[in-house]
Computed example of a mutant assay.
Amino acid sequence: MIRKASLMKVYEDCHEEYHKRHDELWPEMEEMLLAHGVISYSIFLDESTSNLFAYLEIEDEILWSQAADTDVCRKWWDSMKDLMETNADHSPVSRELQEVFFLERKLGE
């Protein structure tokens, strides 16, 4: 399992709509994420700064990198561009974070 984290930014007046759209995640988007090796995916919002912290657990970096090239991912980006900072291709402006510490309790210990 590979852990990944990144920071993004949602527009200040779009917090509620950003949350709503993720509550109503398209089934085809969920299917694509799972097919591209996502084990778990969480996004947290810091309302005081509008920063989004994304945390993913994935199976494989190469498989995960191919998700961005899917039609459904591009369609999702297009649908979210009015809510957050995006690049020219409508992908979210995102900074990957470096892991500096990890602790995990082993089952049965």
Rank of each mutant, 00 (worst) to 15 (best):
K106M: 10
S79G: 14
E61V: 13
A54I: 01
L107W: 08
W76I: 02
F44T: 08
N51T: 12
S40K: 10
V100G: 03
W64F: 14
S91W: 03
D60N: 12
E28I: 09
E109K: 09
M84S: 02
L83S: 00
E30K: 14
E28W: 07
C73G: 01
S6L: 06
K106Y: 04
W26S: 10
I43S: 05
M84P: 01
L7G: 00
E31H: 07
F53A: 15
E109P: 07
L33C: 12
Y18K: 02
I2Q: 13
L63Q: 13
A67M: 03
Y41T: 05
Y41S: 09
Y55K: 04
R74V: 06
D89V: 08
S48A: 15
E104R: 09
M80D: 00
E47G: 10
I39Q: 09
R95F: 11
K75N: 10
C73R: 10
M1G: 13
V72Q: 04
C73L: 05
A68P: 00
E109S: 14
L103Q: 10
A5L: 06
L97T: 08
S79C: 12
E47L: 08
T86N: 04
S65H: 04
L34S: 07
I39G: 11
E57Y: 05
Y41M: 11
L56M: 15
A88Y: 09
E47H: 11
M8E: 01
E57A: 09
I58H: 00
D69R: 11
E61K: 12
L7W: 04
G37H: 03
I58A: 01
P92R: 00
R95N: 12
F53Y: 14
N87V: 08
L56W: 08
D13P: 03
L52H: 00
M32G: 04
